[in-house]
């Protein structure tokens, strides 16, 4: 049976928007505009992507897949760069990281016959990998900046003892990676026990046997886990050195970091 949600049923979803909207109004949270705008924007985006996917799924795989994946990577890189826009070349690092990760993951899927090279399989699964990698890179950048601020004294102490930037920042890198990876490790630990993952739920609702749905979910969960780890590691290890200049001096203001040569 193919699940069908009527347009009237969809309209009832406004109730789910009305609840946080009333809470915001009642407690004067000042979020009403944001909630309304995000709900409308999200709905429009989803419908737009729905129509675009229908169009892409009809295209030849060799055209539709690279086209859509390129768009997804560009949008993800633009979005993630906002978390570290004062860091020189951050956009290019994110872009390169996402391309390498997506190509590696996709190659593994195809090489071991986990996924068929069709837009309807590759695009949604790649979207999950790229989206999660984007979030991991953004979180890692944000966390790293905070760690550099909070550990300013320790960094100065380490440098003054003769440490080079890479050893002085070891603690920062560790803390950043820890923070970026722990939610994923926790999620993987409780997968299926606390919540049924989205993809698996979707497949089961779509009539696929639970065991088959689990196999797909394992492919995507483990792919996401490794790409998130790689993304956080790649961006942290590539960007920490921009907090220092070539004389092993700590750059303490955004302006100094942005203007370094």
């Amino acid at each position: 049976m193919e699940p069908e949600i009527s347009n009237q049923s969809l309209l009832f979803l406004t109730v789910f928007v009305f609840i946080p909207l009333s809470l915001s109004y009642f407690y004067q949270l000042g979020l009403s505009r944001n909630i309304l705008w995000s709900s409308i924007r999200g709905t429009l985006q989803l419908f737009a992507i729905g129509y675009l996917l229908t169009y892409l799924f009809d295209l030849q795989a060799g055209i539709g897949i690279p086209l859509m994946i390129s768009i997804m990577i560009m949008v993800a890189a633009f979005h993630a760069r906002l978390k570290g826009r004062e860091l020189p070349n951050v956009f290019w690092y994110i872009l390169a990281g996402l391309v390498v990760i997506e190509v590696s993951v996709l190659s593994m899927w195809l090489l071991f016959d986990m996924v068929e090279f069709t837009p309807s399989e590759v695009i949604p699964m790649s979207g999950m990998v790229i989206g999660n990698s984007m979030i991991a890179m953004g979180l890692a950048l944000e966390r790293m900046k905070n760690e550099f601020k909070e550990n300013n004294g320790r960094l100065l102490a380490a440098l003054s003892l003769g440490a080079k930037p890479n050893s002085a920042s070891k603690l920062i890198v560790q803390k950043t990676l820890n923070a970026a990876l722990i939610p994923n490790v926790d999620q993987l630990k409780t997968i299926g026990l606390v919540q049924l993952p989205g993809m698996m739920t979707g497949l089961i609702l779509g009539g696929v046997e639970p065991v088959m749905a689990i196999k797909y979910q394992l492919v995507i969960s483990l792919s996401i886990f490794s790409s998130v780890s790689l993304s956080a590691m790649f961006i942290t290890l590539s960007m920490y050195r921009y907090f220092f200049n070539e004389q092993a001096q700590l750059l303490e203001t955004e302006e100094e970091i942005r203007n370094q040569t």
């Binding site: 004294g153 320790r154 100065l156 102490a157 440098l159 003054s160 003892l161 003769g162 080079k164 092993a248």
Partner: peptide
């Protein structure tokens, strides 16, 4: 060489800033 210079010129900061 900057690390060699810093070895010769030691610094103690206002806060101890000990490492974990």
């Amino acid at each position: 060489e900057v690390t060699a210079l810093r070895k010769r010129v030691g610094l103690v900061l206002q806060e101890p800033n000990l490492f974990p």
